[in-house]
Nucleic acid binder design. Structure first.
Lengths: 112, 112
DNA sequence: CTAAACCTTCACATCAGCGTGAAGGTCAAG
DNA sequence: CTTGACCTTCACGCTGATGTGAAGGTTTAG
């Protein structure tokens, strides 16, 4: 399929897809006319990326997951690099939550 | 005092001070040579801005506080506009905390 | 054959809060 | 007179993930 269909099927813009390619997260074969050609596996790749972004991952964070899927694994999260990223993300989120709660308390204290 | 001293006394860069001025948060008299001239009240203004930013306010958020101080109030938080911003900020922070916790849960669920 | 609907590659714009020079004026000390 | 430490006004760079044209080639349906 071409980029427009992949965009529709994965729910992202064509611009985003080209961006993922530019960042090395997505690869495309090229047709004789220069058009990008994708297959079903690419749909899953993009969905994986979006699912990760939905929980706060950056494209950089998603990289090992994509590599894991490309390596033939059924899930992008089974590779050790992915696990590392998940752990890092969890501590990042926890830190952020603690920071926000501290700020909240600080604001309430100031207000009294 | 000039910008360098204000910077030292309030703990920010001269660049930041010029930025605050550009954003309309800080006003400066100008000496005959074109140099910015500040007084004690400006030190308090900048400290107020930094205190607000420390708890997650943007410069835009800080605007009503600065106006409130300029209006002669001893605290920047006593004006109704400031109170509004504080309330908005609290709900923003609460929303963000809830989002982060939801993401955390989502990540943990995916991992099992 | 033509117009719509695709596709291509640049490349600047956005949001925030500055950092970091560039190029140059001012002023006190030695 | 000359450093050197100030100050001035531009104006681009950074981070992330696209949005938004520009300018043009391709394909497809009628």
């Amino acid at each position: 399929m071409r980029i427009g269909e992949l965009a529709r099927r994965s729910g992202v813009s064509t611009r985003a897809l080209r961006h993922y390619e530019e960042k090395g997260l997505l690869a495309a074969r090229r047709g004789a006319n220069g058009y990008r050609e994708y297959d079903e596996a690419d749909v899953r790749l993009v969905q994986e990326i979006r699912a990760l972004m939905a929980v706060g991952f950056t494209l950089e964070d998603a990289r090992p997951f994509v590599a894991c899927l490309r390596a033939g694994n059924e899930s992008g999260g089974v590779c050790p690099e992915s696990v590392d990223v998940v752990r890092r993300k969890l501590t990042e989120i926890d830190t952020e939550i603690r920071d926000l709660m501290a700020r909240r308390d600080e604001m309430l204290r100031r207000n009294t």
